[in-house]
Amino acid sequence: MSIRKLVAAAATAVLLAGCAGTPAPSGTPASGTPSAPTESGTLTVITHDSFALGEKTIAAFKAETGYDVTFVAPGDAGTVVNQLILTKDAPLGDVVFGIDNTFAGRAIGAGILSPYTSPALPEGAEAFAADDTHALTPVDYGDVCVNADTRWFAAKGLAVPRTLDDLARPEYSGLLVVENPASSSPGLAFLAATVGAKGDPGYLDYWKALKANGVKVVKGWTEAYTVEFSGSSGKGDRPLVVSYASSPAYEPATEALTSTCFRQVEYAGVLAGAQNEVGARKFVDFLLSAAVQAEIPESMYMSPVDPDVELPADWKAHAARVDAPIQVPVAELGAKREQWIKEWTAGVIG
């Protein structure tokens, strides 16, 4: 009997300690404090789960700065941003990489970042900036486009579609597979492309037409590209898929439709309240260094923001160059993203 009380007491004590320890929602000094930037011997880097750089590259950064560097990758861009918002009062780390333009508005609005203008930002890369607050520094970008299995179209004697409107035409009925924007970042990017091209609420009519034309929705990129798409290893039965402009570099018998593209830009930023602001800034500079920028295509399948970086041969031969991607301002994306997903779900999934 005393045991029961003891166990209960122990549990309560721990729980109480927890409650007492919950940070008060008081106003922590956010960005822009005039005091000198903080520095410590350790640096914690938060990234999305697609982050990858070679061991040697990372070792070089560690050796150069002398920091004890820890990387944490809690999930996709959405998970990262939301975790950082949740832990704003006791930041998870010092610097973040992997926030994209669909989540940038939310991250900036929540005040989780502290402004930094990197001297390492290459000339020509300012065009990728999220806005003029300097809270986020562009590191790489990728164009999400509809990809076509050119061999399939050649065999059928059918012209490869070129535009978003083509996709809704009867001769392309039942050929397109897309990712669910609620669970997939290319899916969300394609939804943004339709919003950018057709406007709000015009995009809903466009999706109605796609639905009538037999569009298929799957959970994520892996299922769409490696199972449903006819032009990749899964040998599925749909020759049109939402993927990246760079995908043809790995499946040469495919082609990206350059007028259907939405540009995803990935940013890095110094976290507000970082224990090691100096180190965080150095890491942002490091991501913009020539060595990392050159490694990005092969490691993370994105294009570096540095226009002078030499691209891999496969990319030069097969990846599509997108000169005029469909644009949606970061602030609008941040404010309306959830509403669009909700309306899309109601209209397309039902």
Partner: peptide, 16 residues
């Protein structure tokens, strides 16, 4: 985690 990363990338080699 590596399997998850590999299967999320284009190319027959990553999938394999």
């Amino acid at each position: 985690v590596v399997i998850f990363q590999l299967i999320g990338r284009p190319g027959a080699e990553n999938f394999g």
